[in-house]
Amino acid sequence: MVVILEQRNPCDRYYQAWIRSNDINIIQRLRDWRPNGEVLAPISLRQRMVNEATQELMHYLPK
Rank of each mutant, 00 (worst) to 15 (best):
S21I: 08
H59E: 03
L61E: 12
L45R: 07
E52K: 07
W33D: 05
N25H: 08
G37L: 15
P42E: 09
D32R: 15
N51E: 15
R29H: 11
L45C: 06
I19C: 05
N9S: 09
L40I: 02
K63C: 09
L57R: 06
R8Y: 03
W18T: 09
V3Y: 13
A41L: 05
L40T: 02
K63V: 08
N51G: 14
P42V: 00
Y15W: 03
S44F: 04
D32W: 15
R29N: 11
L40E: 04
S21R: 09
R13S: 13
I26R: 01
I26Y: 06
N22K: 07
G37E: 12
H59Y: 04
V2R: 06
M1I: 04
I4D: 09
R34L: 12
R34T: 10
S21N: 13
I4N: 08
I24C: 14
R8L: 04
S44H: 03
Q7W: 00
A53W: 00
E56A: 09
R13W: 10
D23T: 01
S44A: 07
L5P: 02
W33N: 02
T54S: 10
Y15S: 01
V39C: 10
T54F: 08
R8V: 00
V3R: 05
A53N: 00
N25D: 11
Y60S: 08
P62D: 03
I26C: 08
I24A: 14
H59M: 04
H59D: 02
L45A: 06
K63R: 14
R31Q: 11
Q28K: 14
P62V: 00
C11F: 14
T54G: 07
M1L: 06
I27Y: 08
M58P: 06
C11E: 15
L30N: 01
Q7K: 00
M49Y: 05
A53F: 00
D32T: 15
I19L: 07
E38A: 00
N22I: 07
R46G: 06
Q28M: 11
P10N: 04
Q47E: 12
D32M: 15
G37S: 15
V39Q: 06
I43N: 14
Q28S: 13
D12E: 09
V2W: 10
K63T: 10
P62H: 05
C11P: 06
N51Y: 14
Y15R: 07
R48E: 10
A41V: 02
R34Y: 07
